[in-house]
């Protein structure tokens, strides 16, 4: 349950959302990404009011402008790494999906492993595939939900570094939800939630 939350995020920025369990982080993320609808209030994404779109229109919007990285990777187990990266492009019917995928896999250091299935990859590798997938459509905004939660320190750092590098290169807005204060500190702005309300909003 969230109440009275108002903030704006500039394009190309890097925001982290922190707070204890049950503080409303996931709900907020869902609203921002258009996965859920607010009972009151508005969410504008890239200038578009999400409240005016129906479910499928929001899906099409996500497909083009939103990327996701999840705690538990969420790769499609029956597709290879390359095919997983291609999914958003293919859903959109874009050309050159394979080339884009190969390029991105190269960037996350998995150029040689594109034909492997998720079950043949380590956790860190799977999450790097997920990062490649998130950037495949060059989204305007990328939501990462505890992206390092299931990874050890070294792998987690690699994943975050990759995300930040791509964020800088593509000009993608980055929204990071995490428990990890050290990680949150790398963002330019941090919003702290508690009991569904913003208790702090600090820029660095």
């Amino acid at each position: 349950m969230l109440k009275d939350i108002t903030f704006a995020l500039e394009a190309g920025g890097f925001l982290s959302i922190v707070g204890p369990s049950g503080s409303g982080k996931t709900t907020l993320l869902g609203l921002l990404a258009g996965l859920d609808q607010p009972t009151r209030g508005r969410v504008l994404l890239d200038g578009i009011d999400l409240g005016t779109l129906d479910e499928d229109q929001r899906a099409v919007l996500r497909r083009g402008r939103v990327g996701f990285v999840f705690q538990s990777f969420q790769l499609v187990p029956t597709l290879t790494a390359r095919e997983n990266v291609q999914v958003p492009l293919e859903l959109a019917g874009a050309d050159g999906a394979a080339a884009t995928a190969d390029d991105l896999l190269e960037r996350v250091g998995l150029g040689a492993r594109g034909h492997h299935y998720p079950s043949q990859l380590s956790g860190g590798e799977q999450q790097r595939v997920a990062v490649a997938r998130a950037f495949s459509t060059r989204p305007a905004i990328l939501f990462a939900d505890e992206p390092t939660g299931n990874l050890d320190g070294a792998n987690g750092a690699t994943v975050i570094d990759t995300m930040i590098a791509l964020n800088a290169e593509y000009g993608t807005t980055l929204v990071l939800v995490t428990h990890d204060l050290e990680l949150a500190a790398r963002a330019r702005r941090t919003i702290r939630l508690a009991d569904g309300a913003v208790v702090a909003d600090t820029a660095r």
Partner: peptide
């Protein structure tokens, strides 16, 4: 799980 994942990634219900 897969259906919701795909829809999160931007698949329409038709797809």
């Amino acid at each position: 799980r897969e259906g919701t994942l795909l829809r999160t990634l931007g698949a329409t219900r038709g797809q």
